[in-house]
Design a protein around this nucleic acid. Structure first.
Lengths: 125, 125
DNA sequence: CACCTGTATTGATGGGCGTCAACATAGACA
DNA sequence: TGTCTATGTTGACGCCCATCAATACAGGTG
């Protein structure tokens, strides 16, 4: 009932080459559909708490962290859980339960796709 | 009364080398203050209409466009104006009136700073 | 000056979102 | 089985935000 809402920014699956949803922002005006997709990712990172959680996971050893390792961000535990869910739904994190703990890890290809979106050609100015 | 709310993602001014507010997301957990700053930018791009407007400006010739060139995004004129203001307040765009028209242009250094935030070291996995 | 076009501001409205307390679920262990 | 810890879910509340119609402002042109 939960992973039906996951909306990946990437094309179905090309292995791991990170095929972005859209060309760089500077290449041509985005279409409405492209913007809809890409905005979901930016929106997911548009909250300070989520950004800290994401950074905590991304910078953790092996690109993965247990919730207990990263939940010290000044909000209640349910709120942490809520934000992690949002990041998961945005396709930025994946989660896996191992025994007592749940581990979150980053989706490197999505990070790369976002990076490409913001890539700036030398002709930008 | 308007540019008092502009909050740059960059350090005061280092010329144009784009000194980001924060290290890459993957380098270490962001502090609350860093996250607060960076989240404002992601949030600004977290709306489909704003993303299209930004992309339209960024991809326009010379990285600059008149409002009349980009306002065809399916919302009313006041809404377009509102979103452009938001992008300006986030430090992503600047505006300049030239005669009848107002031109918006991208802030390349900020785009670069965001790109660095998402940069992924080879050790990410 | 009056009038027109382009853009910004104001005020109102509806919906979405961040947050928490309370509760539910999952696994470990005795 | 019962209990403890770790994490997720539910429901409610308040606030922010995207949107529009109406209006205001700026600059050009007559």
């Amino acid at each position: 009932m939960s992973n039906a809402k996951v909306l990946p920014l990437l094309e179905p699956a090309d292995g791991q080459g990170a095929a972005p949803c859209c060309p760089p922002l500077t290449e041509r005006p985005m279409t409405a559909a492209e913007a809809e997709t890409a905005a979901r990712m930016f929106k997911a990172l548009g909250d300070p708490v989520r950004l800290r959680l994401f950074s905590a996971v991304a910078s953790h050893e092996g690109g993965e962290a247990c919730v207990c390792d990263i939940s010290d961000v000044g909000v209640s535990q349910p709120t942490v859980s809520h934000h992690l869910k949002k990041l998961k739904e945005a396709g930025l994190l994946t989660s896996e339960r191992r025994g007592t703990w749940v581990y979150y890890r980053i989706e490197p290809s999505v990070l790369a796709a976002m990076g490409k979106l913001l890539a700036m050609p030398a002709a930008a100015r």
